[in-house]
């Protein structure tokens, strides 16, 4: 798990960034798989080309503390209407970034928290509305203004959902990064009736 120091319960900025970006990778995979975004054969492709790129960029931004939020947007392929937004808000301990100090939290505890979130993501299909049309996804990153835009990323609108339903999932904290997970989705017409 990243570059953790010798003592088990000490966590550095780098280690935390590694954990968080790996968490993003896993959760994005889990969401795309559980929501049936792609058939399984093309799923490996997504893993290969799409996500590692996201991961390396994320790690950079996380280490500099300039990543505020990562959003996985699921849209209708036909109309480009946003159907779901998986929102991962990040709070970074500024003292760690500025002074390079380390914090104390056990690996085991962080893993337990992440596991709880993964389980919630997997079980979210029970209440999320069915995606019964072909869908595509986009990854958005909310960053500080002064971040240079890399060539695989372009500036975009936030792709919001008007009047969404929101469900807050568990959060986890590495004592350096605190990640709040929230899924908002388009109000199902059937629910309103």
């Amino acid at each position: 798990m990243g570059s953790r120091t010798a003592t088990k319960d000490i966590i550095t900025l780098r280690g935390s960034a590694a954990i968080v970006s790996e968490f993003f990778g896993y959760s994005a995979n889990s969401i795309l798989y559980n929501r049936g975004l792609y058939p399984e054969e093309s799923f490996t492709k997504v893993k290969k080309y799409g996500l590692p790129l996201l991961l390396t960029q994320d790690e950079e931004w996380l280490e500099s503390g300039k990543l505020q939020r990562v959003v996985l947007v699921i849209m209708s392929k036909a109309t480009n209407e946003v159907l779901e937004r998986w929102n991962f808000s990040i709070e970074t301990d500024s003292e760690v970034v500025e002074k390079g100090v380390s914090r104390e939290k056990s690996d085991k505890e962080i893993m337990r928290e992440i596991q709880a979130i993964m389980r919630q993501i997997a079980s979210s299909i029970t209440y999320l509305p069915c995606l019964d049309e072909p869908c595509v996804f986009d990854v958005l990153a909310y960053t500080d203004k002064d971040v240079a835009v890399p060539f695989t990323w372009i500036e975009s609108d936030p792709k919001l959902i008007a009047n969404p339903q929101m469900v807050k999932l568990h959060s986890f904290d590495t004592k350096i990064h605190k990640i709040d997970t929230l899924v908002s989705y388009k109000n199902d017409e059937w629910d309103e009736q």
């Binding site: 799409g50 790129l53 996201l54 960029q57 505020q68 939020r69 959003v71 937004r85 929102n87 595509v136 996804f137 986009d138 990854v139 958005l140 990153a141 909310y142 960053t143 500080d144 203004k145 971040v147 835009v149 695989t152 990323w153 372009i154 500036e155 975009s156 609108d157 936030p158 792709k159 919001l160 959902i161 969404p164 929101m166 807050k168 929230l182 908002s184």
Partner: peptide
């Protein structure tokens, strides 16, 4: 949670698919 942000200190980037 809805996704609002202040444009003063935040910008939104989209990963090219």
């Amino acid at each position: 949670g809805h996704g609002d942000f202040s444009s003063a200190n935040t910008k939104v980037l989209r990963m090219v698919n």
